[in-house]
Design a protein around this nucleic acid. Sequence first.
DNA 1: CGGCAGCCTATTCGATTGATCAGTCCTTGC
DNA 2: GCAAGGACTGATCAATCGAATAGGCTGCCG
Lengths: 229, 229
Amino acid sequence: MGTVRERPPARSTTRTVRATSRPSADDTRGRILAAALDLFSERSFEGATTREIAVRAGVTQPLLNYHFHGKEELWRAAIDSLFDRLTTVLDTRLTGLRGVDERTVTELVVREFVLFSAANPQLHRIITQECKADGPRIDWLVETHIRPLYDAMADRLRRLSEAGLAPAVPPAHLYYILTGAAATMFVLAPECRRLSGVDPSDPAVAEQHADAVLSLLFGTGNHSGHKEL
Amino acid sequence: MGTVRERPPARSTTRTVRATSRPSADDTRGRILAAALDLFSERSFEGATTREIAVRAGVTQPLLNYHFHGKEELWRAAIDSLFDRLTTVLDTRLTGLRGVDERTVTELVVREFVLFSAANPQLHRIITQECKADGPRIDWLVETHIRPLYDAMADRLRRLSEAGLAPAVPPAHLYYILTGAAATMFVLAPECRRLSGVDPSDPAVAEQHADAVLSLLFGTGNHSGHKEL
DNA sequence: CGGCAGCCTATTCGATTGATCAGTCCTTGC
DNA sequence: GCAAGGACTGATCAATCGAATAGGCTGCCG
C-alpha cells in the first residue's frame, strides 16, 4: 500500500491519436473512466465494485489495477475528468464574455452551470456522496477542485450583493441556495419523473429550470418557456 | 430467502413503557434504527455494513437479523422512523395554523422544513442515495413517503402562484428549487465548513438560512440576522 | 527474424460481506 | 418453583470484495 509503483504512461492531456490496429490504451482508459464515473456516482465509492466498472467498460477487472493503481486512484482520475469538463465549459464561457457587465456575466454563468448539472448529474451526486462520509476524499475534492470554483462564485455574488444587483444574503448561503436550486431537480431525476411526470433529462426542461432559477434569484429570467402543468 | 418467517412483536407505534430491569427490546430496536439511519445515510445502502451498524448500536450483528429480517427490512424501518418524525413535525405545525392565510402558512411550513433539514440531513442524503440507483427502493420511497408530501406542497405552491403570491414558475420546478435551496447547505455541511467556515450544524446558521430562502423565494423574510461575512 | 515492451487476460488470494444456526440468559405466566 | 419463550450472543457459512501474480498476445525496432 505504501509502496509507490511506476505508473503507466498516462498521456492524459494530449490525447495523441494512435492510428494502429492495436487496441489504444487511451481509448481503454477513457472507457474505464466513463464507466467509473457512472458507477461511482450511482453506487458511491464503497458500493461500486471494480468488477462492474470493468464489465461496463468492456474490459477485465485486473486491467483497472493496471492502468490505475487501485480503486482510490481510479476514483480520483474519474473525478479529474469530470471537473476538467466543468472548468473548461465555464472558462470558455467567461473568456467569451470579456467586457460584458458583471450582472449579465453572472446570470449566464449560472445558466451554464444549470445546464451542466442537467447533463452531468454525476457531479453533485459524487460530491453529496463524499460529503456524507466526511473523510479524506472530501478533503481532496474540496482542495483540488471545488475551492477555486467556490471562491470565484462567492466573490462574484458578494460584489453583486454589495452593488444591489443580487439579493442581500451572505455569500455562503447564497452559494448553496444557488447550487441547490440549480442541481437538485437533476440529482433527483428519478424521483422527479415519478412525482411530477416532468423528465429532467429533457433539454427543454433544463432550459425551463435555468429560466426559473434565474427569475427567482435575480428577478430577471426568460419566462417564455414557462407553462403551468 | 423467499421463506417468510414470523416477525418479532414489532410494537412500533405505541411504545409501551416496560418498567422491567430486563433490557427493553424497544430500546434496542430504537438504538439499532438510529444507528442504521446514520450509517445508511453516510455510506449508502450497499456501503453500510450490518456489523458497523451493530457496533454503533452497541449490540451484536446477528441481533439485526433477529429484530429485522435482513438488511432491506432494516433499511425500510429506519426510513419509516425518519419520515414519521418529519410528518409529525409538519402536521402539528399545520394543525396549529388553522385559519391563518395560506401565504403565511406556506412560509412557516417552508421554515419548518429548512430547520428539519438542518437537524436531519440524513433525509435528503438517503433520498439522493436511492435516486442514483433508480431501483426498487426509490419506488418504495416515493410511493410510501414522498408522494403525499410532494402533492401537498405542489398544490400549495400552485395555488399561491395562481393567486400571484408566489413566483410564476411551474410547481415541479418550484418544488425542487425550494427543497434544493433549503437542504443543500446541510447535506453538504462538511464541504460548507471547509469552503466558507460557516458551520451549518449551528442552529443560528439554520435560522439564517431559513430567512435567506424565504426572502429569495417569497420576497419576505426576517433579515435581522443577516451579516455579511 | 528475434527479442522486447506495451496491453491485456485467467487465475487466485486473503479479507469482508450478509445471513444462519445452535445455544445461553433471564423474565414471565401458571 | 418451573416450564415457556423472548432477547441476545458466539461461531460459522457461502458469496463477493479489491488486489496480486503469472502468463499470452501483438506490433514495433534493431
